[in-house]
Design a protein around this nucleic acid. Structure first.
Length: 377
RNA sequence: GUGGAUGUAGCUCAGUUGGUUAGAGCACUAGAUUGUGGUUCUAGGGGUCGCCGGUUCAAAUCCGGUCUUCCACC
């Protein structure tokens, strides 16, 4: 089981700085985890991830990896770390979200989910037990419980019923986890997931239930699915007040740079989101001065560096006009440069947040930063 | 030279029993995207319908002329 140590607790907010120790290395929190769905952070080489973006942990996805290349390939390779050559910590999402967002036809029962692959339409069944078995074979350091991510909006009755299902599935995940072992000689930790849509009583009930399991870390799911930001923050704050302080808290799928800073202030330690990489591929860059759509015509003849204050080498190596051209031409290099930039920015942002928490200056810095991040360049 | 075809948005093309401010796809200009299907969606700008003339209440559409491009034949 991974170890979490709190290094500092902010006096003016619930923000905290900590360290997670895994068998594949240390993670300094708060942390952003680049998403590498199918065993690759799109458009970014592993060495660049480590040395240039300063990623400390990346995500993989159970649903995608199970469908392709399949468990046989990954287990023969000796697990996802060896298969991908990423030797740092990995977290795998359980596939609960993908079943909700991707699979064409899905049938939810108490037993599990039957769905059709988005790749070839073939029929598959995920149960909590099976999903744990898959994640044992993939071999990530942190694995996630199989949950149902409720959509938004979601009526109270459905959310309540769904929550009961997610809790029942959690118990089965925990049982399977406790009665199976890691396959590749290093430990794995299972994170349960709080659900409950935007209903306070359901979130409280779920957070208390999840807290009682005394897991290595805890996650909050079912947010950032279209609900207003105030709801997202309210639920996050509420759940954080209940989840144990001495365990890392992971807010799944969040978010924009501002979302991340606000959630850090509420007590979140871990984040993942497709925004920095997906939006990079479409030319949306995040910088310390605001958001920049590099495709905009106004950059056509701007030969200044992409981001003169950026901390990635691509920021000064290439000009705005060149990157605009690459993205317009759909050159792969454009995706690569923009992805490196955005990831480096996200990881700089959480690192800076950590530094400010450690030095006791977090809150005023956050307020100033959130304003800047909303600017449009 | 003769015969046939062609010309409508930046590109490829729809659009005739003549009938409001002429359309589509792509491109372009913007916006969206939150546990990634290298995705998808939304909005916008842009055309004296080759040119000149005629018929008509009304012409991208019918008629005459002219030019462009292409094909075939001589």
């Amino acid at each position: 089981m991974l170890k979490f140590e709190l290094s500092a607790q902010d006096k003016n907010s619930s923000a905290r700085a900590g360290e997670i120790q895994t068998d594949h290395g240390k993670i300094e929190t708060p942390i952003f985890m680049p998403v590498g769905t199918a065993g690759a952070v799109k458009a970014v080489h592993m060495p660049e991830l480590k040395t240039d973006t300063k990623a400390q942990i990346i995500l993989g996805n159970t649903y995608h990896l199970y469908l392709r290349p399949g468990l046989e390939v990954i287990s023969h390779a000796g697990g996802l770390h060896k298969f991908t050559s990423w030797d740092g910590p990995i977290l795998t999402d359980s596939g609960g979200y993908q079943v909700y967002s991707l699979a064409n036809t899905r049938k939810l029962t108490e037993q599990g989910v039957i769905f059709n692959s988005h790749i070839d339409g073939s029929k598959h069944r995920f149960t909590p037990e099976f999903v744990i078995n898959i994640q044992r074979k993939i071999g990530a350091d942190i694995i996630m419980a199989f949950d149902e991510c409720t959509p938004y909006p979601c009526d109270y009755e459905y959310a309540k019923k769904s929550l009961d299902l997610t809790h029942a599935w959690l118990d089965r995940c925990l049982y399977q986890f406790d009665n199976s072992g890691a396959l590749y000689g290093f430990e794995q930790s299972l994170f349960p997931i709080v659900q409950g849509s935007v209903y306070k009583d359901l979130r409280v009930k779920s957070a208390e239930y999840i807290a009682s399991k005394n897991a290595a870390g805890n996650a909050i799911g079912g947010l950032s699915v279209g609900e207003p930001h105030v709801d997202m923050y309210e639920m996050t704050e509420l759940v954080c007040s209940i989840l144990p302080k001495d365990k890392p808290r992971y807010l799944m799928g969040v978010g924009t740079p501002a979302n991340i800073l606000e959630s850090i202030a509420l007590g979140i330690d871990m984040f993942d989101c497709v925004m920095p990489t997906r939006n990079a591929r479409h030319g949306l860059l995040y910088t310390s001065k605001g958001i920049m759509n590099i495709k905009n015509e106004k950059w056509k003849n701007d030969y200044s560096p992409i981001d003169e204050n950026g901390n990635s080498y691509v920021d000064t190596q290439y000009s705005k006009a060149y990157l605009r051209h690459l993205i317009h031409s759909q050159e792969m290099l454009g995706s690569m440069i923009a992805s490196l930039h955005n990831l480096a920015f996200y990881l700089w942002l959480v690192k800076e947040a950590r530094n400010k928490i450690l030095s006791g200056e977090f809150l005023p810095w956050k307020e100033k930063m959130v304003k800047k991040l909303a600017e449009r360049l």
